Computed example of a mutant assay.
Amino acid sequence: MKQKKWYSYLWIVELLYLCLGLFNILFAWLGMLFFTIPLLIAVFGGGKAYCNRYCGRGQLLGLLGEKLKLSRNVPPPKFLRSRWFRYGFLAFFMTMFGLMLFSTYKVFTGAPLQQTVTLLWVFKLPWQWAEVDMVSPWIAQFAFGFFSVMLTSTVLGFVTMVLFRPRSWCVYCPMGTMTQGICILKHGKEVAAHGRKSKEDRGVAEAAGK
């Protein structure tokens, strides 16, 4: 039997991150690694290696969809893979991220701390039990906002995993779209097209056992 590589177990890191965030909201700061590492890999010549190999969330969705059979395993709709939807979702996602940073800035300038995690940008989950007194309020505010972003994107990944193929989230993941954009800027349309094909093939078809 072929021995698995060390990066095949990075789904544990994704699961551990979510659990730590529920235990103490300040662990949400660790999620910045999930934001910066894919971009740095793309900038320094690694292309979409993070999406294809190191993404713990993609691995977790594949595990739940394939091994536990929680996915319907049907192709995602064409609009989900379209350029307008992917870049539109990225723009919306970054707008929400910008609003989160603005909320953090307001707390930094004296506004009261909002101890809530917002799921799907609408539903506010109370988090009053979180221990955040040991840090500055703006640090805690960023943690609440950033965990909201991470939890929301995870839920969206689970929903598309159940409805379609296990790694359908990879098709419109904002980080995947940004790394592909970096590939376009660095290597031109030919490599970008190859990256998009790799993203769809590795993130959807291969994860579904095709």
Results as ranks from 00 to 15, higher is better:
residue 161 M to P: 00
residue 150 M to S: 11
residue 168 S to C: 04
residue 124 K to F: 00
residue 37 I to V: 14
residue 189 K to R: 13
residue 79 F to I: 13
residue 39 L to T: 12
residue 4 K to I: 05
residue 86 R to Q: 15
residue 122 V to Y: 06
residue 142 F to P: 00
residue 70 L to C: 10
residue 153 S to R: 11
residue 73 N to W: 11
residue 75 P to C: 03
residue 182 I to Q: 05
residue 140 A to D: 00
residue 52 N to W: 00
residue 123 F to M: 05
residue 130 A to C: 11
residue 29 W to H: 14
residue 80 L to P: 04
residue 40 L to D: 15
residue 171 V to Q: 04
residue 178 M to G: 04
residue 48 K to T: 07
residue 103 S to W: 14
residue 60 L to P: 01
residue 78 K to S: 15
residue 137 P to G: 00
residue 57 R to Q: 14
residue 103 S to D: 15
residue 132 V to N: 07
residue 86 R to L: 12
residue 33 L to M: 09
residue 37 I to M: 04
residue 34 F to Y: 13
residue 96 M to I: 11
residue 103 S to E: 15
residue 158 F to T: 04
residue 88 G to E: 10
residue 15 L to S: 05
residue 21 G to E: 00
residue 130 A to N: 10
residue 154 T to H: 04
residue 8 S to L: 06
residue 145 G to L: 06
residue 86 R to K: 15
residue 137 P to C: 03
residue 15 L to F: 11
residue 116 T to Y: 12
residue 137 P to N: 08
residue 49 A to V: 08
residue 35 F to C: 03
residue 90 L to D: 09
residue 162 V to W: 07
residue 86 R to C: 13
residue 171 V to Y: 08
residue 141 Q to N: 13
residue 52 N to G: 12
residue 1 M to F: 13
residue 127 W to F: 12
residue 3 Q to Y: 06
residue 38 P to W: 07
residue 4 K to M: 05
residue 92 F to P: 04
residue 148 S to V: 03
residue 141 Q to E: 15
residue 7 Y to K: 12
residue 203 G to C: 08
residue 101 L to P: 08
residue 148 S to R: 01
residue 46 G to A: 12
residue 38 P to D: 08
residue 14 E to L: 02
residue 134 M to A: 15
residue 146 F to Q: 07
residue 152 T to G: 10
residue 53 R to P: 00
residue 7 Y to R: 13
residue 137 P to L: 03
residue 203 G to Y: 00
residue 111 A to P: 06
residue 10 L to F: 14
residue 149 V to Q: 07
residue 154 T to C: 11
residue 95 T to Q: 11
residue 39 L to W: 09
residue 37 I to D: 09
residue 140 A to M: 08
residue 80 L to E: 07
residue 25 I to W: 04
residue 77 P to C: 06
residue 53 R to H: 12
residue 110 G to T: 14
residue 57 R to F: 14
residue 144 F to G: 01
residue 206 E to V: 07
residue 204 V to S: 02
residue 201 D to R: 10
residue 77 P to V: 10
residue 198 S to V: 03
residue 171 V to I: 04
residue 121 W to N: 10
residue 20 L to P: 03
residue 175 M to I: 03
residue 45 G to H: 08
residue 193 A to P: 02
residue 32 M to S: 10
residue 157 G to K: 01
residue 117 V to C: 04
residue 90 L to W: 05
residue 199 K to D: 01
residue 153 S to I: 13
residue 83 R to M: 05
residue 80 L to M: 06
residue 79 F to V: 09
residue 54 Y to I: 03
residue 98 G to C: 04
residue 5 K to I: 10
residue 144 F to Q: 07
residue 107 V to Q: 07
residue 21 G to T: 06
residue 207 A to S: 09
residue 193 A to Q: 11
residue 52 N to S: 11
residue 167 R to E: 14
residue 152 T to F: 10
residue 23 F to T: 07
residue 183 C to A: 02
residue 50 Y to A: 01
residue 160 T to K: 05
residue 16 L to P: 10
residue 103 S to Y: 14
